[in-house]
């Protein structure tokens, strides 16, 4: 019953040391890694550097810049806090080590430990011969008969003691039984008296401090633990796996569930829906949804919102995740119209441009919208069409006088990544046809091209450039080859409060009933190498001479198919929609047929 | 929920639009029931309203024969309005749906001939929404969208039409024509 606590406080320092090291060592390594590699991690991460990112930084307005600066600051403070913990931790460790070193109780306890190699002062890996010779040397020195006569009795006893130990050590290493004992119990004489105790320092358990302990325990178990657990639990409970608040998700589901065909789907409707999200209410409890709606519309129309400017930036930055949540729910309800509208709304918020036939043009910087819409002689609605004119004419059409600004606008326009479909087919890894009930995926070969590039027909890209390597691991996991492609670079979105690199959303629609059949797949890895090509449609005249397929990087997109191929043979048609979340224009919308054969 | 006795209508002050819509439906139903003087009415369509609608529609077709398009459109619109108003909510849905779809199909052609592409397009949308997926709906819809310069939408329409009816010549030629327009549209 009477536990003997750690009288000489010889065990709890080790326990504390162990606990601290377990926490501190990985933390310190991580911290060092962040501090050293952290910088270049941002720089040299897979994001390919791209001219649009730099231009986007150049065109970012001051209020967005200050907003970003404020937001970014938070991160570094957090870093400091972690440093603090590390420094404190290591000082405690230092103190403990010093305490252990100085504490003699620990020292003599240490001598209790029987270590034959130390006694014979030979290395642990020495052979029997060395052990024997070492033993012989030492025993001659320490043998009682050999000891000098004039020793004092207590010296003599120490030496005799020493001799006994040496003999024991020798036996522990050579004689079978004692070695057996030593290996099993760590001591040749068999199991030693081991003292079991609680590694708690004495001062903690004697009567006076025990009250503090009890109170400590009650506080820990009664308040602190429940507090953290409940906070963690409410946090996890309140967020869906897509990262939006449960209440927002249920609101969106309710809107979709009660959606009437007589309602018209527009971006205004999407904005109204996300304005009722729980996130906004939590961020700004004092504001009503219609205020959020107005702010979002202000953002899209690039109107200043006065003192609600920061509020506007925060909800616009948040709307990104909300629209993805809404998109996910809309695809779960198989509603294509709302899925499309959600992505269009995201584009409108990213580019701060309302959805209109001229959005592709108006998303360019320095465009004088009024002059463009009135002035445009024949209907120019796409960048491709814009690039059929020469630069000067384009300047006039867009209403840009200043040459450098025009140059920058043209750079942006020619670097907006358009997708061109080269090959599209259903594929089952390792099969040449789609067999019934197999697990196909949609394999696309696309070319990232600029709007100024001359158009050429897809079959000018030879088949061998569109083959996937048929080696084993690509058969085992066909999606591995996609992740070798570089990540998308920072997008040109100077009005968006946060830096972003965007993605394409791939929707798969069943042509029979026009409904979405699976949740969207996000494409965030594609090489933009082709954009650096000139290949201007105004200069390139005949394709055969100037066109060389080798110069073009073919991108791969693989869309997993959510359900197995149908049972019976036949042709099934699916519509694949690949919509960019960043820019107006670079969307793909085509039909792929699945020919199910034996 | 409170009931207004003299106007015999239900109302729920300050309710959501979904509840509001249900209340309207109930009110409409009760009004028609109260107005119905024939005690043993059946879900079969009221034959005198059918004949009225038919007469109006016929006159529309007559105008069509005489190449008087505007009048034709007007009298077909009247026929549709008549159907919308006269038919009681309990008259067989299948009959009302067919009747409305039939009249709209004619109205679509009249609108397209007269260049009212947006009108034609919305009627075609309605026909598709109510389950009419025949090829000629896709043909007309693609044509209307091309006339409205919505080439992307036209392409997805015609591709869907071809998915449902791969051998349709008209759809194929529309697809080629639209791809050409798209290439031009994209410069």
């Amino acid at each position: 019953q009477s536990y003997d606590y750690d009288e000489g406080s010889e065990t709890w320092p080790f326990f504390m040391l162990a606990v601290l090291c377990v926490i501190l060592v990985p933390l310190t390594i991580m911290q060092l890694w962040e501090a050293l590699a952290g910088g270049e991690k941002d720089r040299s991460s897979q994001h390919q550097q791209h001219v649009l990112g730099d231009l986007s930084e150049r065109y970012t307005g001051n209020d967005v810049r200050t907003f970003r600066a404020k937001y970014a600051a938070k991160k570094s403070k957090w870093l400091a806090k972690r440093n603090l913990v590390i420094i404190a931790g290591w000082t405690i460790v230092a103190y403990l080590v010093q305490h252990i070193g100085s504490n003699d109780a620990i020292k003599d306890a240490a001598t209790l430990l029987f270590d034959p190699y130390a006694l014979l002062d030979i290395s642990a890996s020495s052979t029997d011969r060395e052990i024997r010779s070492a033993y012989r040397k030492l025993s001659i020195k320490f043998h009682p008969d050999k000891l000098a006569k004039d020793l004092k009795p207590e010296e003599r006893s120490v030496l005799e003691e020493q001799y006994v130990m040496i003999t024991k050590a020798y036996k522990a290493l050579t004689d079978e039984i004692t070695r057996e004992n030593y290996l099993k119990y760590g001591h040749p004489d068999g199991p030693q008296a081991t003292s079991h105790g609680i590694a708690l320092p004495k001062f903690l358990v004697d009567s006076s401090a025990s009250l503090v302990m009890i109170v400590g325990y009650i506080a820990l178990l009664g308040f602190i633990l429940p507090f953290f657990v409940s906070r963690w639990w409410s946090k996890t409970q309140s967020m869906t796996k897509k990262g939006i608040h449960v209440k927002s998700a249920s609101y969106f589901s309710d809107r979709l569930f009660n959606f009437k065909p007589s309602q018209v789907v527009t971006t205004q409707l999407m904005i109204r829906w996300i304005s009722h999200s729980e996130e906004f209410k939590l961020m700004f409890p004092a504001l009503a949804p219609n205020i959020f709606e107005t702010l979002l519309h202000d953002h899209i129309n690039r109107k200043h919102s006065g003192n609600l400017q920061t509020t506007k930036f925060r909800i616009v930055a948040k709307s990104h995740i909300l629209l993805f949540g809404l998109l996910d729910i809309a695809t779960t309800f198989r509603n294509l119209e709302i899925s499309n509208a959600a992505i269009d709304t995201l584009k409108a918020l990213v580019q701060a441009i309302p959805l209109s036939p001229y959005s592709q043009i108006l998303q360019l910087p320095n465009v004088d919208a009024k002059r463009f819409v009135e002035g445009s002689v024949d209907d120019i609605r796409t960048l491709g069409k814009l690039f059929t004119y020469d630069d000067a004419k384009i300047g006039k059409i867009l209403g840009i006088e200043d040459a450098t600004q025009l140059q920058e606008t043209l750079t942006v326009a020619s670097n907006i990544p358009y997708l061109k479909l080269i090959r599209a087919e259903f594929k089952v890894p390792g099969e040449s046809v789609i067999t019934p009930l197999s697990t196909p995926h949609i394999s696309l070969k696309v070319l990232v091209r600029s709007a100024k590039h001359k158009f050429f027909s897809p079959n000018m890209i030879p088949d061998e450039m569109c083959q996937d390597e048929q080696d084993f691991d690509s058969l085992r996991d066909p999606f591995a080859s996609v992740s070798e492609q570089p990540k998308l670079p920072q997008s040109f979105a100077p009005y968006f409060p946060a830096k972003r690199s965007g993605c394409w959303c791939a929707l798969v629609v069943l042509q029979k009933d026009g409904k979405v059949i699976q949740t969207p797949m996000l494409i965030d890895r594609l090489s933009f190498a082709n954009l650096s090509q000139d290949f201007d449609k105004r200069t390139v005249k005949d394709l055969d001479k100037d066109f060389n397929p080798e110069n073009w990087a073919v991108g791969t997109i693989k869309i997993p198919f959510s359900q197995p191929a149908p049972e019976e043979k036949g042709d099934y048609f699916f519509r694949v929609i690949i919509k960019s979340t960043e820019y107006f224009g670079p969307d793909l919308d085509f039909t792929v047929s699945m020919a199910v054969r034996e | 929920l409170n009931y207004n006795s003299n106007s015999k209508l239900l109302e729920v002050p300050g309710c959501s639009e979904d509840v509001e819509m249900n209340i309207q439906q109930i009110n409409k139903l009760t009004q028609d029931l109260v107005a119905e003087n024939n005690p043993n009415f059946t879900p079969q369509p009221h034959d005198d309203s059918t004949s009225m609608i038919k007469k109006l529609f016929e006159s529309g077709l007559k105008n069509l024969q005489q190449q008087k398009m505007a009048e034709a459109l007007k009298s077909i619109n009247l026929a549709i309005e008549m159907a919308q108003r006269k038919r009681a909510p309990w008259e067989a849905f299948a009959v009302q749906l067919q009747e409305l779809q039939f009249m709209l199909k004619n109205r679509v052609d009249l609108s397209l001939i007269q260049g009212k592409f947006m009108d034609g397009l919305q009627d075609l949308d309605f026909l598709q929404n109510t389950g009419l997926n025949s090829s000629d709906v896709f043909i007309r819809k693609t044509d209307a969208l091309m006339k409205l310069k919505q080439y992307e939408l036209a392409r997805s329409e015609v591709e869907r039409g071809l998915s449902l009816d791969p051998t349709n010549i008209k759809l194929k030629s529309l697809h080629i024509e639209n791809s050409r327009r798209l290439a031009e549209y994209n410069g």
Binding site: P261, T266 | E91, M118, D119, D123, T130
Partner: peptide, 22 residues
């Protein structure tokens, strides 16, 4: 039938919205 009527009425609204949007 009433839902059908509502969808039919929506044709006018859709015409406005789309002509304005396009």
């Amino acid at each position: 039938n009433q839902a059908l009527k509502r969808r039919f009425q929506a044709i006018l609204l859709r015409k406005e919205v789309y002509s304005e949007q396009w």
